[in-house]
């Protein structure tokens, strides 16, 4: 019952503290946009070769950035070797296949995005293959899912941790503990209040990244929301827990290099597959690792719920663990 009152109060405080709201919503948008500008500059001219592609389809292909050239199969291969084509589109037996030059992940990503609309309209399947290299998408497309998760995690950690800390420094925690409120009701109130807010936050950040910045997105938007909200709750419960070990806001900031930055290294922004097992074990203790993995699964590989459920349960587990520890940590302030 009191959980509800605490939640209501937190939402009311959010309404007054526009700056923190802006930090949690606008700052991630700003930073994501900046990263997008750096990592996702569109090529001005994308050279696409077309082999046996019907005229009707070619018409649909022409756009500002796409330069389409009709040529023979052997000539296309030569040009791919020279590197003067970014991709070749083949049409055989009513099937299209795209052969990407592949050495420039930005170009490969851009071409796929261009052709995505065509695919959607015509409802034809397209096999995508790479002439060179691996299935690298644009760099931003690859790091985008992890970044969305990271920014949600980071800003909720900071704002949640600091507001719980302030509850202590401004004396309201002690004041609250002099009332019949249960320790768990305070902690759950925080989860609920921030939880409701992070639904909104996740919605804004995810839709901005996907629909405005155009991060590659193949999966379910709903799953993306679920994972970001779970990440936010894990961040909140972790933030409020570690705030117990900070005396003031500045000490809370000191947790960033200790708790936040290492998580970035393990969230898949940098490849860690080749590293020793003990390094990977460290990564497995971090919530962001699972959040980022699930986000990539959904957005890049169109993962179904079954494929991300392990990560979802682990994130829930983290939240449950941190919350329990927090309720326990409050015993320091009142035994009952």
């Amino acid at each position: 019952m009191d959980t509800f009152h605490v939640m209501k109060r937190i939402l009311l405080q959010f309404r007054r503290d526009k700056r923190s709201v802006a930090l949690m919503v606008v700052a991630p948008l700003l930073v994501l946009s900046l990263m997008w500008m750096v990592l996702d500059h569109d090529e001005t001219n994308l050279e696409l070769g077309a082999v046996d592609v019907p005229e009707s389809m070619l018409e649909k292909l022409s756009s500002d950035t796409l330069v389409v050239e009709t040529l023979s199969s052997s000539r296309a291969e030569e040009k791919l070797d020279e590197g003067t084509l970014d991709a070749v589109l083949y049409f055989e037996n009513q099937e299209t296949s795209l052969l990407l030059e592949g050495s420039d992940p930005n170009a490969a990503g851009a071409i796929q995005k261009e052709l995505q609309s065509l695919r959607a309209n015509q409802q034809i399947s397209m096999n995508v293959e790479y002439y060179h290299g691996s299935e690298d998408l644009g760099l931003f497309d690859y790091v985008g899912p992890a970044l969305i998760g990271f920014f949600v995690f980071f800003f909720v950690f900071i704002v949640g941790g600091v507001s719980f800390l302030r509850e202590r420094t401004q004396g309201t925690l002690e004041r609250l503990l002099a009332t019949p409120i249960k320790r768990s009701e305070i902690v759950f109130g925080y989860l609920a209040g921030f939880g409701l807010f992070t639904i909104l936050q996740s919605l804004v950040i995810a839709s901005f990244s996907i629909y405005i910045l155009g991060v590659f997105m193949d999966g379910s938007f709903f799953y993306v929301l679920i994972v970001t909200i779970l990440l936010a709750l894990a961040a909140l419960s972790l933030g409020t827990l570690v705030s117990a070990f900070a005396e003031n806001e500045f000490q809370m900031i000191q947790f960033i290099p200790l708790i936040i930055v290492p998580q970035v290294f393990f969230s898949g922004l940098f490849p860690i597959e080749g590293l020793g097992t003990w390094v990977q074990v460290i990564g497995q203790m971090m919530p962001l690792t699972y959040g980022a993995e699930a986000m990539r699964g959904i957005m890049l590989r169109e993962a179904s719920f079954a494929e991300i459920q392990l990560e979802v349960y682990i994130l829930l587990g983290f939240t449950a663990l941190f919350t329990t520890l927090n309720i326990f940590a409050l015993k320091k302030h009142r035994r009952l």
Binding site: H5, L12, Q170
Partner: peptide, 23 residues
């Protein structure tokens, strides 16, 4: 308490309403 244990962003009424609701 000796320190003014109040929520700075909230109005006087909202502070009292919060504490009253806990009871």
């Amino acid at each position: 308490a000796q320190s003014d244990a109040l929520y700075q962003e909230l109005t006087a009424w909202e502070n009292l309403d919060f504490f009253a609701s806990i009871y």
